[in-house]
Design a protein around this nucleic acid. Structure first.
Lengths: 111, 111
DNA sequence: GTGACATACCTATGTATCTTAGGTATAAAT
DNA sequence: ATTTATACCTAAGATACATAGGTATGTCAC
């Protein structure tokens, strides 16, 4: 049984945001950074992350640079201009969503 | 193509919250009230709502009373004590989720 | 030196939670 | 008379994950 997370639907936005604020990163690094930043609340699974990165790259929202560290490979991803536009768009949707949730769960009384 | 919403995963919590704050309601009424409260941002589809109501009832989180209005039927749902516990539990998860998202997208600088 | 764990990449399958798209029927509005 | 709103329902399809595997390199404790 898969245990769905509340972050469902937000992972792509989170990746775009992270690459914008923190600069180029590689996949594994992203999983760790997110875990750190959220004090372990959000652990992006590799099974979710890698397909997201590949999709964003295919959409030209990210570019990749492959680097060798010893005998291992790292694929560094960087956000493009198109990706930045996409990020802003998704951020706007997220803001509205958050505001609406606030309204539903913590309504400001409207007299 | 189905257009996924950011509210995915929150609909059950929203229904529980609504039945707690606004008292007993019937399905169609819930869809309208949510649309109203969110200024149209969130339109819970009947195809999503009715299965949720049936599931919550099966879990004893809701009770039903059927009423006749003219020749039509209304099924009024009310939250149970177990449902209230579930609501509180889901609310706590939601709060943490929202706080984490805030942290990711609007980080308070940590010196 | 070997066993465990971390790093670093990947994909295939299963599944929860929806959206879409239908259906039935009554009531109100134009 | 036709359209729209009310009020219930379910089946099929889509999405975005989680789960669960796989490969390989590097590090650390014992």
């Amino acid at each position: 049984m898969s245990q769905p997370s509340l972050y469902r639907g937000n992972l792509t936005a989170i990746v775009l945001q992270l690459l914008e604020t923190d600069g180029r990163m590689y996949g594994y690094e992203i999983t760790q950074k997110v875990k750190d930043k959220t004090n372990g609340s959000l652990q992006i699974k590799e099974g979710a992350l890698y397909p997201i990165l590949h999709k964003l790259e295919a959409e030209n929202f990210l570019t990749v640079e492959v680097e060798k560290v010893g005998k291992r490979i790292r694929k560094y991803y960087k956000i493009t201009e198109a990706g930045e536009k996409e990020r802003i768009s998704q951020l706007a949707a997220l803001k509205e969503y958050m505001a609406t949730m606030e309204q539903l769960f913590n309504p400001k009384l409207s007299y």
